[in-house]
Amino acid sequence: MTDDALLAYRPHARPRTGRPGAHPGADAGSLGLFRNHAPFSRYPEARRIDLRASLRDPFGEIHVRRFEPRNVVDVYALVDLSASMGFVGHAAKIGLVEDICVAMARAAHRYGDAFGIIGADAHIRRDFQIRATRRRSLETEIRELFRRSTPAGRSAAGLAEAANLLAGRRKLVFVLSDFRQTAAVTDALLANLIRHDVVPIIVGDSAEETDLPEWGLIEMQDLETGQRRVVFMRPALRRKWLDEAARRKSALRRLFMRYGRTPVTVADRLDIENLSRQLMEA
């Protein structure tokens, strides 16, 4: 990752935290970018009376200028720690997740947002948590957290439980997962986090989807269940495999869109500019 590039993100909905920050807020205030005019009777702020607008009003109404304050938002990264995240293809998935989290922490610090991490496999991982904070040591803490634990869970169903830890104001929640769990699990996760700004980040790897050999015998082992299967790879099967991957991807996308979330994909390496663009578009 490049150190100088700063990850850009924005909450989908305007935050209403009341604390000054970097993101356009939902409240109207007396600082920031101009938003609109309001009658003095409704918004009695004498310091912001707009003389020009008041004089122009044929009915003699006194207008007050309103500004939109920029607010902070709490940012959380929800990290899937199921064993499938331990996959190492062209890159280690969990390493990629770590880099993304660090980049987010750095960006959150620059924007003045608090950043926290919640890890989950089959259940919430109590040992893999940082409550939203603005500590400057956050980057080191995140690195330490990832160094200490390996993804070994049998499922990612615990991600949905994170809703209990994310009570209170609307937060920006990045879900970092390979989303290889069943649609029902993902559905439950999205339904539980409906109050928050959820951005699903699909962590993929080109080795598992596109970078397949044409011929060969491959014995695969499921990282989560430990099941083994021998696959006799040949062009016809490869095509079928790719078709299936594409179908799974589009089904996943449809599921996210039903909740109004646009998925963001990261594969192989962290490209901050690319990720920023996707995050801003989401």
């Binding site: 499938s84 996959f87 290889r180 598992e208 014995e219 695969m220 499921d222 989560e224 269940t225 299967r229």
Partner: peptide
Amino acid sequence: RSAFPSLA
């Protein structure tokens, strides 16, 4: 053996 995220 090749580890794979999900045989599904």
